Computed example of a mutant assay.
Amino acid sequence: MPTVFVLPFPAIDPVIFEIGPFALRWYALAYIVGIILAWRYMRALVRNDRLWAGLQRPTPVDLDDFVLWGTFGIIIGGRLGYVLFYNPSYYFANPGEALAVWTGGMSFHGGFAGTVIAIFLFAWRRGLSVWTLFDLAGCAAPIGLFFGRIANFINAELWGRTTDVPWAVVFPGAGPEPRHPSQIYEAALEGVVLFLVLRLLSHRFKLLEKPGFLAGAFAFGYGVGRSIAELYRVPDAHIGYLSGFLTMGILLSLPMILGGIALMVWAARRSNREARN
């Protein structure tokens, strides 16, 4: 079926401005804005007494200090995840480029693993509940995911499969065929929808009182949203499809889905006394 209508790719320069050798890119700005807004949202959550039923939680000052730990976890984990999961042969041959984040290439699953490690270390150092800190990070993470996927769209990367839907986009560098704007799908699913679901669970159902539940809900929700989006997204050219429709993104999301279910069940079954210990 021929395409009825195709959207031209918006002429947005990936570089916002340049001053000498310094260049501010939309991708970097997305990380900065996402981290700042996620931090502010976590502070708002811990200040809202009605969400906690007296449960001990981090203070706003604890979260101020955690921002640096979380940022390092996201950046280092995201980069190493990309190196190990998506292009190991190239970086094993060129190890000097493994940490060159300015060249592009970040993995959410790697950033997730890096953040998990940062949370464990910070919670241990401060004597905080690791599950409550996971819950707070999970509630706020969709904010950063939203801005990151919008930046992917601006960079004209991670585009979708060819299609004839009326909102198809012709991406520069992807040939003349109209494609799914899969980055926008991910921004909607992993960002907007997941944020609203977690907001409902935290505020309407007060599930911050069950440490670990919202962290599990985030892992499950992200895994499902990412797997759906992968059905419309073109996998990395040097990896392709692993088997049938299976992509690396789906494969890495499966443990998150299963782990998220297990964590929600475990958290829901804990008694209130256990949750406070």
Rank of each mutant, 00 (worst) to 15 (best):
A113H: 03
A268C: 06
F122E: 02
G160D: 01
L242N: 11
Y31G: 02
A38S: 15
E177G: 14
W266S: 08
T71K: 03
W52I: 02
N48E: 11
I257H: 02
W26V: 11
S89E: 13
V165W: 07
M42G: 06
H203G: 00
Q56Y: 01
N272D: 10
F92N: 05
R276P: 03
G244V: 07
F195H: 12
T71I: 10
F108K: 08
P10A: 02
R273D: 13
R276G: 01
G110F: 01
L231A: 15
I257Y: 02
L242Q: 07
F218K: 06
F108L: 11
A93F: 00
H238P: 00
T163E: 07
G114V: 05
F245A: 15
W52M: 03
F92L: 15
G111N: 05
H238N: 15
L80D: 06
F85G: 05
R226I: 11
E190C: 02
A168H: 01
M256T: 01
G249F: 01
G78Q: 04
Y232K: 02
A141F: 11
V197Q: 12
W69M: 11
T3M: 02
S271N: 07
A44K: 10
V33M: 12
V61L: 13
R199Q: 13
A187E: 06
G96A: 14
G225F: 00
Y90F: 15
S107P: 04
V234M: 15
R125C: 00
G114Y: 02
S253I: 01
G225C: 05
L200T: 13
R270Y: 06
L136M: 02
A174E: 03
G81L: 13
I16L: 14
I16V: 13
F120I: 14
V116A: 12
V170H: 08
A53D: 15
M256P: 00
V83D: 08
D13N: 15
A219D: 06
A156Q: 10
H203N: 06
G81Q: 12
L214Q: 09
R161G: 02
L133S: 06
F120D: 00
T103H: 15
V224A: 08
I74A: 14
R125A: 01
I228R: 05
G144Y: 08
R57A: 13
A141L: 14
G73E: 05
L252V: 10
L121S: 12
L189I: 04
K210H: 12
K206G: 07
P181Y: 04
I239T: 11
I12G: 04
F146R: 08
L196Q: 09
P60K: 14
A268W: 15
L214H: 11
I119A: 02
M256G: 01
N272Q: 08
W124M: 10
V193Q: 09
W266H: 10
